[in-house]
């Protein structure tokens, strides 16, 4: 290409310029996009932070809600346990023996207040059947020994009030854990400890399938005492830990801690 040709090309294209309006429109467009992007970036960061917080709240809330803090073991022959969360609501129902599992499966007490749940369980035909005879029902509250423990125990006692053959007890989480290892409720575990001392042939499975009345009778028989019947004059008596009495203010319900099986047998006879 000669110089003239080169100049022709140069001059032809040099005459082409971007219009001011085109440049301004482009700048405005870019400014808009940058602002929108910055805003959406801020929104995204906010949304991400909010989502994280929500997750923490949901996770923490779920944990607080669904984690039992206190357990109420119910023993007649059906043996089952209610897990109570810190809001006094039933969050788990577990059967310890076959009858207990059948009963647990038929119950719809999850997310109910534990007192309402207890009333519903006590009103169940299979439970009422036991109670109408000379059966004995025990309610054992276990937990970490906090204020809720005492409150739930008081609540359980008020449910037991009016029933002459319902007993209320409390225990520690450690005891409950030991009982769980043998697949027993705390009440049955305590009976097992007493019975196995007197009769080493007794097995946890055997204890698990016996009714509370049968267990008590067997303890009484082995210790050479007569049959213990609820309502023999001691049912309204309430046994506090270390032998402290609370005046029997809970109607038919009895209350005690520790190995009351042996202790109570002595008192009753």
């Amino acid at each position: 290409m000669n110089d003239q040709g080169k100049n022709q090309w140069k001059e032809a294209f040099d005459r082409i310029h971007a219009e001011e309006a085109l440049k301004e429109h482009t700048k405005e467009y870019l400014a808009r996009r940058l602002r929108r992007r910055a805003a959406s970036g801020r929104w995204r960061r906010f949304a991400a932070a909010a989502a994280c917080l929500l997750l923490v709240f949901l996770g923490g809330g779920s944990y607080l809600y669904f984690t039992p803090t206190v357990y109420i073991a119910i023993d007649v022959n059906p043996s089952l346990e209610l897990g109570i969360n810190r809001f006094d609501q039933v969050v788990s129902v577990e059967g310890y023996n076959e009858d207990g599992q059948t009963l647990a499966a038929s119950l719809h007490v999850r997310f109910m207040n534990y007192q309402e749940a207890l009333e519903e369980i006590i009103a169940q035909d299979s439970v009422e059947e036991y109670l109408s005879g000379d059966g004995l029902l025990t309610l054992t509250v276990t937990g970490n020994g906090g204020a809720q423990n005492e409150e739930v125990l008081a609540g359980v006692e008020s449910c037991a009030a009016g029933h002459r053959n319902i007993r209320c007890h409390s225990g520690s989480s450690e005891e409950r854990a030991e009982a769980l290892e043998l697949g027993l409720s705390l009440e049955r575990y305590r009976a097992y400890l007493i019975l196995s001392e007197q009769d080493p042939s007794v097995t946890p499975e055997e204890i698990g399938e016996m009714s509370i009345r049968e267990i008590r009778d067997r303890i009484a028989a082995l210790s050479g005492q007569g049959t213990i019947l609820p309502g023999d004059g001691e049912d309204s008596e309430t046994h506090r830990e270390h032998g402290e009495e609370d005046g029997g203010s809970h109607g038919g319900g009895g209350r005690g801690h520790g190995h009351r099986w042996g202790q109570e047998g002595g008192e009753e006879n």
């Binding site: 082409i16 310029h17 971007a18 219009e19 085109l22 440049k23 482009t26 700048k27 870019l30």
Partner: peptide, 12 residues
């Protein structure tokens, strides 16, 4: 804006 000023003619 600097890029628009500098390269607008080339793009055009």
């Amino acid at each position: 804006n600097r890029a628009v000023e500098r390269y607008a003619d080339t793009v055009r």
